[in-house]
Design a binder for these strands. Structure first.
Lengths: 355, 355
DNA sequence: GGTCATTTTGAATTCGTAGTCATTTCTTGT
DNA sequence: ACAAGAAATGACTACGAATTCAAAATGACC
């Protein structure tokens, strides 16, 4: 019981239906729904009763149409196979849900930014969080042209007029370099990646610059550029490095999966970590703490980054022409068993990188 | 240039604007947009030109309102930290994108099914894929009452009138049991979980039944019920099992993360895998193939399951009162280095489980 | 050149909600 | 008891796209 006879298929009860049943006008129903104080308690009561009985739900399309807002936020992600991104997505989803916003997700691996562009321009979403932007992104060009509500999360792209939130990847690279040198590592190698993403570029740059500042060199044969950021790629890279006449005694990998690949590859060739080889990753994905890897890595303040990104985005939705803001949050070096068996790690925060 | 003067903020060009500029009626613009053949090529040309110049995009809310469809599908996921689920989400997203549908994601860890219920009833989504349903789910009760467009993916809940797609978890459990027994394992243990999810329940049940059929026993002290399905939980479980006077020589873990935890825990206590202890997981998440674990596990036909789930859902959206369908797809045992160093594995498909 | 059929176009309408504005009902003070 | 003001309510409308139905334009044919 409690169902209304004659309701249209799929139970589409409208505010008019409710009004009729409660013997009030549709306007009054609308007022009750929106908690307008200008309704007599007695009337409100009656309407609420019918609302409950009919299990009325407002038509979202009509409401969005009328209000000009979708109450949805678009999120463009990439490579959900890399644990960092699901974690980020989870955080975004949780925080948006808390704010009463829905989350529409696009995977930039399947269609790039284009669907998100269109969705935004069609009003499907009120704003977009881009977690996978690169400088070549088509979306970013659009964004730059119009005054769209977009925030880049975990990416920075200079010259683009959108809000951006990232952690200090330059500084993260620096920390790793200083840590390895301070612990007496002699032959330090780097497994990097194609520099499309700003994160990767900055980590490498920060690492290199810091080595230079410490009068160390990163010889070309100690640098491997991975194409795919995959486990296999890390294995391949470490294999090359270990074939060298003088193999490295420490490797910084620009993300954790590369590091794990490198570790598995090194072990497969008989090397012990950390006795023979130190390995450092980046991101501190969940697996990094597991026994098999126990990986020293750099952790980004994910929840905070997400919170700030959402803050910026909602503010921009409210005010499209506000000045553009860039946020850059500090990282943390997490020292685990893949390094540091021989030397005591130095006190953490050395000096600031030059501005 | 190319921007239309006087257009409302955020470039909201309407079909009326386009009509005015192209000197046709709004109806004609609508016809061009929907590729109605009843437009003279010359007129169509003119309208298309203006559409391009104004960079018109239809208002999604108005369109959804009029059409009564949202062109969005809701997906309820849980525990994105477990790699299987991001992989599933990625597959769902890719396939939906190919079909021109958007994907709205809810995390059942933050709010359960309730937001998805409401979204469906408000017409925000045309249908919902539930990947994290349990028998206690509030949504399922709703679904059972109305004739909602919902499909359960990777879950089965008897007595509920919704379409369901899963793989044969009973049979997966059976395969593992038969494999371990055929390979001569003597003391076989099981690390299971709280039986809220049908998948876990079926894996355990299939495993137990198969052991019984082979005249083996699963003594209570060889069974550990994990609460959280976490790595730590696997470690804890294996620690208990290895403290036994007669520790097991093979452990089946109902998912891969438990198995990895068990493996790390076993190794931490000095056991070698597979020499001292075999470990089998379930799901074949990406990490399972990595060198550190090289885990024998059961693989589900994920892409296929997703495809079928979407098929069922779209069919149901078209026809709400069609008979309910349940699909159950076959699994595959993937044998890797965490087992099978000593014995040759038996020919794979033994016999079918009794119907 | 006129008639009829066909093609093409436009005016008007619909969808459900949330506003505006006008009207009715209630309350208060005298 | 009545007026004036306040409170509560209802009639009406807009939003943008798609559709219906009617009207206009075009084409074919004799």
């Amino acid at each position: 019981m409690g169902r209304i006879k004659g309701a249209k298929p799929s139970g589409s009860v409208t505010s008019h239906d409710v009004a009729r049943l409660a013997k009030v006008s549709q306007a009054t129903v609308s007022r009750v729904l929106r908690d307008d104080p200008r309704v007599r308690p007695q009337t409100r009561e009656r309407v609420l009763k019918v609302l409950a009985e009919t299990r009325y739900e407002p038509n979202a399309a009509a409401r969005a149409f009328r209000a000009g807002r979708a109450d949805s936020i678009g999120v463009v992600v990439a490579r959900l196979s890399y644990q960092l991104y699901p974690a980020m997505l989870e955080a975004i989803g949780a925080q948006l849900a808390r704010l009463g916003r829905r989350m529409i997700v696009w995977d930039s691996d399947h269609g790039g930014d284009a669907p998100a562009i269109r969705a935004f321009r069609q009003g499907v979403v009120d704003g977009v969080i881009l977690t996978a932007a690169t400088a070549e992104s088509e979306f970013l060009r659009e964004v730059n042209a119009e005054g769209s509500a977009v925030v880049l999360l975990n990416r920075t792209v200079a010259d683009y007029a959108s809000d951006q939130v990232s952690s200090d990847n330059l500084d993260g690279g620096r920390r790793v370099a200083e840590y390895l040198v301070a612990c007496g590592r002699e032959r330090i190698a780097l497994i990097g990646g194609i520099p499309r993403a700003s994160t990767i570029r900055d980590r490498e740059r920060g690492f290199r610059k810091s080595l230079e500042r410490l009068d160390r060199e990163l010889p070309p044969h100690y640098y491997f550029r991975s194409e795919t950021f995959s486990h296999a790629s890390g294995e391949q890279a470490v294999t090359r490095l270990m074939e060298l006449a003088s193999p490295p005694d420490a490797i910084f990998c620009v993300n954790d999966v590369l590091a794990m690949g490198a570790m598995d590859g090194a072990r497969a060739r008989g090397a012990r970590v950390p006795d023979d080889l130190w390995i450092v990753g980046y991101d501190d994905i969940e697996i990094a703490s597991w026994g098999a890897y126990d990986l020293t890595t750099v952790r980004q303040p994910m929840e905070l980054m997400v919170a700030q990104a959402i803050d910026l985005l909602l503010a921009r939705i409210d005010q499209r022409d506000a000045p553009v803001r860039h946020k850059c949050l500090p990282n943390e070096l997490v020292i685990r068993g893949s390094t540091a068996r021989q030397t005591t790690p130095p006190s953490q925060p050395a000096r600031k990188p030059r501005p």
